[in-house]
Design a protein around this nucleic acid. Structure first.
Lengths: 302, 302
DNA sequence: CTCGTGATATACAAGAATGCATGGCAAGCC
DNA sequence: GGCTTGCCATGCATTCTTGTATATCACGAG
C-alpha cells in the first residue's frame, strides 16, 4: 500500500488526545489530572500539535485558555476520535479473557457499606487476582462511559446497551432509635407522623417526592436533618436524631434501631445488577457479576 | 469533571495507531514503513497495547501475523479512530493559514513533465516558502484520503466532497515522427491507419476503447508498443517507433513530431483542477490552486 | 537441499518525552 | 490593598521511548 495513504494519520495521536481532554476539561491542569499526567506535559503536547498542524488551537489569555475558531472546527473530529477510542477500550475489556485485573463496581454508599464487604471477601476467595474498586457514590455513574464496570441500582436501566439482572426485591419500612421514640412518642399510625422528625438522604425535594408517593404525609418541615450520604443519614437515625425510611435488610443489620408503625408497608424496592453489553464477554467481569448476583440474592433471603 | 470519565481514553493512542496500521498493512515492517517508524518500535507498541488491554491482538505464526478473533472485534473501532484522525488532519490542513509548508500535487506524468515545471517556477517566485511535492502518476490518487492536495485531471470528479475548476480545453490529434512516416507512408485519411503502428499509454484495453470511441478504426494488432508511462510512450513516438494520439499543446512543445491527418479532429479534452472541499480554507493550498489555474489556463492560449 | 528474501525478536546507545520544582500572572475574597 | 488560589510557562534531572545493528526464523525458488 502506498505510504501516502497514511499521511493523514502520521501525526501524534497522543497529542490529539491531549487536545481533546484539554478542550473538554477547559484547562491544561484539569486535563493533566484527568489523564494522570502533569500540566507541563499536556501543555507541551498541545503546543506540539499546534506546531504540527500549523494551527493555533487555543487562545492563551492569562489564566484560562479558550478554543480559537480553527480549534472549534477541529474539536468535533477529535471528539469523534475519542468516542471511537472509548468504544475500543470498552470492547477490549469485553474481549479480555484474563482473570486478573481491575473491576470497578459502583453502588450507593449504603449498599456498599452494608452489603458489599462480605461479598467482596467471598470474591477474594474465589478469584484472589481480581482487584476490586468500589465507587460508593449516590450519583449515578455512566456505564457507557466506563465510569464503572458493574452498577448496583434500585431502578431498571432503560438503555438497550446495558444488560440488567433483577437480583431480588426488598421492602422499605419506618425505623427509629429508642432514644428518639422516648422523646417524641411512639407513633402507631401514619397520621401520627405529621410532627415527627425525619432524616433525609440525598436531595431533599426528591426525597420528599419519593416519600409522599409511598403514602407518608410529610412536608419540608419534617426534614430536620439531611445528608447526601446515606450512611451519614442512617448514623443520625441510629443516634436518635430522627426517623427514616430504610430498606429492611439494612435495618436488620442495625440493632440500634427498631421498626415503627409495623403495618406500614411501602412498595417493594427492586435490586438490579447492571453492566454493559460489551462486557458480558469478559471472563473477569462476568465472574464478578455472577458472584455479586448470587451473593446478593442469597443475602436477601436471610 | 470526574476523572473516571476519561478512564476509557487513558490508554496510549499511538499504540492504537500502531495497531491500526499494522492490521491494515498486514505486517509490522510494512506498518513501520507506512508511519515512518521502525519495525522494532511498531512491534513494541503493539505488544504494549496488548499488554495494556489484556488482549492478544495478533497471532504470531512465523513470518506474518494475523488478527486473532478478539483483534478482529477491536479493529473496527480503531479504524473508526483512524477515520476520525484522517478527517481531523484534513480539516487541520484546511484551517492552516500558514503560507509556508507542503503542498502535494498529482497529475499524469505527461502533464507533470510538460506543463508543471514553468508553473512551479512561477509559484516559487510568488511564494518561495511553499514546498511542492509532485506525484507524477497515472493512477488516480484519492484526494479524500489526502494522497494529494490538488489533482490535475482530464475528467470531472463526481464526489460532492471535491471541488473542481474547469481550467481549459485542449484537443487531441495524431502525431508521428518523420522517421516513422518515411518508413510507413504518410496517411491522409483515417482509413489509411488500419495498418499503422501505434504507441499506447496506460492499459491497452482501455486505451483501445477510448481511441475507437473517437473514431479511429484500430484493433489490438495496431498496438505494437505500450507503456504505463505517458512520457515513455511519447518518447517512443519521438524516436519514430509509432504514431500516437496526443494533446495539441504537448505536441507543440515537441519539435521532433509532426501532425498527421490534420483534418482528424477528436473530441475536446477538458482540464480540471481538483481539490478537497476542506482545503479551500487553507491559504497555502488556495494560493497554489489559484496559481495553477491561472498558469494552466494561459498556457493553453499560446 | 541450499540459499535468498523478508519477516519478527532482542541488545544497547542515543535521543526525546516526562515529571518536579519554580516563577509569574490573573481573578476572587476578605 | 493584601492575600489566597488556581492557572500557565520554563529549567533541569530522570525515565522512557526510539533507532541501529544483529540474531533468528519461515517460506519459496532454483
Amino acid at each position: 500500500m502506498a505510504s501516502r495513504t497514511w499521511q493523514t494519520v502520521r501525526f501524534d495521536w497522543n497529542q490529539a488526545r491531549a487536545f481533546l481532554v484539554t478542550a473538554e476539561e477547559g484547562s491544561l491542569s484539569a486535563a493533566a489530572r484527568a489523564l494522570g499526567l502533569t500540566q507541563p506535559t499536556l501543555g507541551r503536547q498541545v503546543a506540539a500539535l499546534e506546531e504540527a498542524l500549523g494551527v493555533t488551537l487555543f487562545e492563551r489569555l492569562g489564566r484560562s485558555l479558550s478554543l480559537t475558531e480553527p480549534g472549534l472546527e477541529l474539536v468535533d473530529h477529535v471528539k469523534a476520535m475519542g468516542e471511537a477510542a472509548g468504544r475500543m477500550s470498552l470492547a477490549a475489556s469485553g474481549q479480555s479473557q484474563a482473570i486478573e485485573g481491575q473491576v470497578c463496581i459502583t453502588a450507593s454508599d449504603l449498599l456498599s457499606v452494608y452489603h458489599l464487604p462480605p461479598v467482596l471477601e467471598r470474591l477474594r476467595c474465589i478469584a484472589p487476582e481480581i482487584e476490586v474498586e468500589v465507587v460508593a457514590s449516590n450519583e449515578i455513574r455512566d456505564l457507557k462511559r466506563r465510569e464503572a464496570d458493574i452498577a448496583i441500582r434500585h431502578v431498571r436501566p432503560e438503555q438497550p446497551d446495558l444488560i440488567a439482572k433483577h437480583v431480588r426485591d426488598t421492602t422499605a419500612h419506618l425505623y427509629a432509635a429508642p432514644a428518639y421514640l422516648e422523646r417524641h412518642g411512639r407513633p402507631s399510625t401514619v397520621e401520627d407522623l405529621v410532627d415527627s422528625v425525619f432524616v433525609a438522604a440525598g436531595q431533599p425535594d426528591r426525597y420528599l417526592a419519593d416519600v409522599r408517593s409511598s403514602g407518608l404525609p410529610l412536608t419540608k418541615a419534617n426534614l430536620k436533618y439531611m445528608s447526601d450520604s446515606g450512611v451519614m443519614a442512617w448514623e443520625m437515625v441510629k443516634q436518635g436524631l430522627g426517623m427514616a425510611i430504610m430498606f429492611r435488610d439494612v435495618a436488620e443489620l442495625t440493632p440500634e434501631v427498631e421498626n415503627v408503625v409495623p403495618d406500614f408497608g411501602t412498595v417493594p424496592v427492586p435490586l438490579w445488577l447492571v453492566t454493559h453489553r460489551e462486557l458480558r464477554t469478559s471472563r473477569r467481569i462476568r465472574l464478578v457479576f455472577d458472584v455479586l448476583a448470587e451473593a446478593l440474592a442469597r443475602d436477601g433471603s436471610t
